[in-house]
Structures are given as C-alpha cells and as structure tokens.
Design a protein around this nucleic acid. Structure first.
Lengths: 205, 205
DNA sequence: CTCATGGTGGACTGACTAGTCCAAGATAGT
DNA sequence: ACTATCTTGGACTAGTCAGTCCACCATGAG
C-alpha cells in the first residue's frame, strides 16, 4: 500500500539473493523478484535501476555474509595449515546441508557471466586473486614453520585455488560427492603439516 | 536451394558446436545456429527436433574429438604420474592458445545446466565419475610402484578432479593464469613420483 | 518430357523478456 | 483538515525467444 516507503534497498537485495542463488542471473525473471520481495515492479525499479543492479547488490550481500566469514579464516594474519584444512572441512559440512545444491552465488555468477559480460570480469578476477592470496598467506606461514618450501607453497596454492572453484562447481551436480572431496582436500592439507611421513610407501597394503 | 539434402546431421552438429562453445546453450539463439550452419530454420529442424537435440549432438561430437583424446591419456591401462602430469601440461599449452577463453564446452554445460535441468544431470555425474576413475587409474599405478599409499591415491584423485573442473572455470576469466595453474599442478604431480624429498624442509630460504 | 517426392526459405505464432509509465491513494507537514 | 509529495499496483511497450507451417521448386524415377 502506498504512503511512505515500507522497505529498504537492503531488504530487496537480501530477498533477491535467494532467487538469484537458486536460479542464476539469466534464469531469474523480474517477475520472480517481485514474488520474492512481495513488491511490485515500480517499487523494485525504485530501489534499483536495473535487474543487474539488484544482482550486484545481492552479490555484495552474499560476499559479506557468506564468503567473508569463511575465507576470512584463511586470510587471518595467523592462519596456517590448520585454518586452510578447517576451511575445507567447513565447506564439507555445508555441502552436507540442504542448500548445497545451489552452489556458490559468486562462483555461479563467474561461471555464468565471466568472459561473456565484460563488466563482470573485474569482479571475477578480483575474487580469484583474493583466494590465491588467502592460500598463499596460510601456506606461507606453514613454510615459515618449515613444513614446505617456497616452490611447494606456490604450487599448492594454485592447486587449492583451482580445487575450491572445482568443488563449488561439482557440488551442484552431486553434493555428497563434493563433501567427500572437501574432506579429502582437508586431509591432504593436514598431511602437509607433518614433516613428511617416511613410512608412506609401506602403509598402503 | 531445394532438391536432395545438401548436408548431414553431423555437419550441423559440428557447426553448432562452435557457437555453443562460444556463447553457451541459453546464449545461443536458433538464428545464430542458422548463421553458423548456413541453413534455414526448417532445414535445421529437419535434422534435429529441438535446439536441445542440436546441443546434445554438438556435445557428443565435442566429447569424441576433444575430451576423449586428452583424457584417454590418463585412462590408458599403463598410465601413471607421467601421463597425469602430461595431461595438465597439455591443458596448459591449450590455455596459452587463442581459443582458451571459451573454456570447455562440457564443463560450461555442466556449469550452466547441472542442477537446473534434470535431464542433463546424468551426463554431468557420468563425466565426474569418468574423471575420477581416470585419475584413480593413473595414481593407482603410481601407488603400485611405491610412490604413494592408498589413502594418498584417493585424496589426490579428489583433488585433481576438483582442480580440473576449477581450471576450466578459471580459464574463462584469465587464461594465462589458468595456464600457470596447470603447470603448477603438473609439477606437483611430478613431485609425487619422487619417493619424497627429505630436504624439503630446508630448501625454502 | 512429366510427375511426385521432399528439401528449402522465410513468414508467422504465442510465450516469454526487461524496463516504462501513469492513475490511484496513503502519508507527513502544516 | 488540507495539500503536496512520493510510493504503489498493474497495464503496457518493444524486443527476443523456440518452434511451426506453407508455398515454392530442384531433383530423381518412369
């Protein structure tokens, strides 16, 4: 009902986030945003000039509420292999939950828009850099503790960064399998902490 | 011009493959398929009943011409760490080429359709299983040679599978970076072949 | 040479899309 | 209580989408 505005821009972004997360950017019609927010078209366009602006706001909200807390663990100044492993275990737990099939809003957006929508590319590039920096941080501390050398830090950072993107893609097809993958990665990271098991070759059979 | 049919279904699939590869499934209009094939709408729909059928045929062609030769290297009965590393180096070379930005048609399709189009899910699940089996094959042989134990085989298989999906996603935003990632992964795999460097802890500084 | 077969181009359909616009009406300040 | 301001709902526009359909005509058989 008319009068003074009954919602904030942030309300719109949060409600829209759920729909974009579930159905993707192109897959979300403005009508669906109306249903999700309970607002009519004019009210929506009063808050944001374009569907894309709604999406950007939803993505920004997602990053602060979902990405920052998790990745922040690995970005912490005292983060090490423990935190890197815990990060992937946390993902594994999330992948065992009911909402895992939606994947990651940010990585879904990269998959959908990167390379095709030029205005989106910087965000994708920034995020990749951020993840790489986070793992370099954690693995660098491990190297300082003598667990690995510099060459290993950069190689393993590359591998963890690629793996992170990969599990978020895989979780949309098969979340239980992706949960297992995350736990495997966490275990592998943990194994890096050991100076290196010299009995590795014999414990197989 | 009318008369007897001047093209085969396979011609259509191959031409369509290029467009789908470049622009994605939803992003490709039937008009674009007309341009690519040089056929008119009726001729297209004479070869395939639906846009989706064209896509499936294009994807099948992609798998036999692009995926099979590369992944076959790792699936070979005598494949080991050498072949797994060579697989990622081969990817790195491809990522340095001009067409890298399109990514992988199959993985793009998984990213676009998995979880949203139920009829596509089996193909996605099958491919993930296939990749996992391929790396299990190669790493299993390495384990038989004493380079690692069973636990490492399964963990590292998970990691390589996730990494493969990840690099194909990343290559669409930044192909030079993805090429470096592939080479790092190849080097890491190669390092598994060594019984395990006991001087790893000291060579850092 | 003639006719039936069937490939072909292009107009068309109905269902969507994002975004615009305006009349209706509730509120806040006076 | 009155009025100006600004939110609201919903009709509307212009464009795109996948898929259908038909008149046209080149070809192969007899």
């Amino acid at each position: 009902m008319p009068g003074r505005r009954s919602y904030t821009d942030a309300d719109v972004a949060v409600a829209a986030k759920q729909v974009f997360w579930e159905r993707g950017y192109e897959g979300t019609a403005v009508d669906a945003l109306q249903d999700a927010t309970g607002l009519s078209r004019s009210s929506l366009y009063l808050a944001y000039d374009t569907k894309r602006a709604v999406f950007d706001a939803a993505l920004a909200d997602y990053i602060t509420t979902f990405v920052d807390p998790r990745l922040g663990l690995v970005e912490a100044p005292d983060a090490g292999l423990r935190e890197a492993a815990a990060f992937f275990r946390g993902l594994a737990d999330y992948f065992s939950g009911p909402d895992a099939g939606r994947g990651c809003l940010l990585i879904n957006a990269i998959a959908e828009l990167a390379g095709r929508d030029p205005s989106f590319s910087p965000l994708a590039a920034d995020f990749t850099m951020r993840v790489r920096a986070a793992f370099t941080n954690a693995l660098g501390h491990a190297a300082a503790d003598g667990a690995m050398n510099r060459r290993q830090v950069s190689r393993r950072t590359e591998m963890l960064t690629a793996s992170l993107f990969g599990v978020w893609l895989a979780v949309r097809s098969d979340s239980p399998a992706a949960a297992i993958t995350c736990r495997s990665i966490a275990q592998e990271i943990t194994s890096w902490a050991r100076p290196v098991p010299s009995n590795a070759r014999r414990s197989g059979s």
